[in-house]
């Protein structure tokens, strides 16, 4: 499965780079992620709770960053396994500054196996994209808080270092990661969105509304 895309964070490159290397930030921004810890230089371990269609379960994963060119690019190798199957992925990430914002492009090849792939096959692609999108959105929310903190500190006349320290003070709790349910709902929404082309969506929604009204009418008449 090829995973690729682009995203623009509302934060300067140095903040984005920092965040993308911080296991705590990543595990809270990633839906279902928990307890990422460093186990070596640029190597982390943690758990990922995944739900794809009818299959759910916990993957125990190892993430390794290589070919690091700060603050521009790195290669990420993911090796995860658990009861629902396994995932092995290699991907590269590239950051380019875009004024006060940062543009990232990612490209990766993931091999997914086991029950999660055979039973959830049709939902896998969309689910993966949805989880990535939600992760990036989550990360962006976190980064916005960071930027705001830095701006506040700078406005107060503090030096760059103090500003950075102030930003670091903004603990992750100020950004609340989405709940499992909301993640699942978003995935479901994305999957459904993938199934119905945009031009038919009003028709489908209209049809569903009519059907619900009909059922309600039949029940309450």
């Amino acid at each position: 499965m090829i995973i690729e895309g682009e995203y623009t964070f509302d934060a300067p490159q140095d903040l984005v780079w920092q965040a993308l290397q911080d296991p705590d930030v990543l595990s809270s921004a990633m839906p279902g992620g928990e307890g990422f810890t460093a186990v070596g230089e640029n190597e982390y371990e943690g758990n990922l709770n995944v739900k794809v269609g009818p299959v759910q379960g916990k993957f125990k994963g190892n993430i390794k960053l290589t070919d690091i060119v700060a603050p521009e690019s790195y290669t990420m190798t993911v090796d995860g396994k658990g009861a629902p199957g396994f995932v092995k992925a290699v991907g590269s990430l590239k950051l380019t500054p875009d004024g006060e914002r940062t543009h990232i492009a990612y490209h990766g090849d993931a091999q997914v196996g086991g029950r999660i792939a055979s039973v959830g096959q049709r939902l896998l692609d969309t689910s993966a994209k949805s989880i990535i999108r939600q992760s990036l959105d989550g990360l962006n929310e976190y980064l916005k808080v960071q930027v705001a903190a830095r701006a506040a500190a700078t406005a107060a006349g503090a030096s760059e270092e103090e500003a950075a320290a102030a930003a670091a003070q903004v603990e992750i709790p100020t950004y609340t990661p989405p709940s499992q349910t909301s993640v699942a709902m978003n995935v479901a929404k994305d999957v459904a969105g993938d199934l119905v082309p945009p031009k038919y969506r009003p028709l489908v929604i209209g049809g569903v509304v009519l059907l619900v009204l009909l059922i309600l009418y039949l029940i309450f008449r």
């Binding site: 091999q111 196996g113 086991g114 029950r115 792939a117 055979s118 096959q121």
Partner: peptide, 10 residues
């Protein structure tokens, strides 16, 4: 798929 993963399990 190319890894021998069955894609038609349901």
């Amino acid at each position: 798929d190319e890894n021998g993963q069955c894609l038609t399990g349901t």
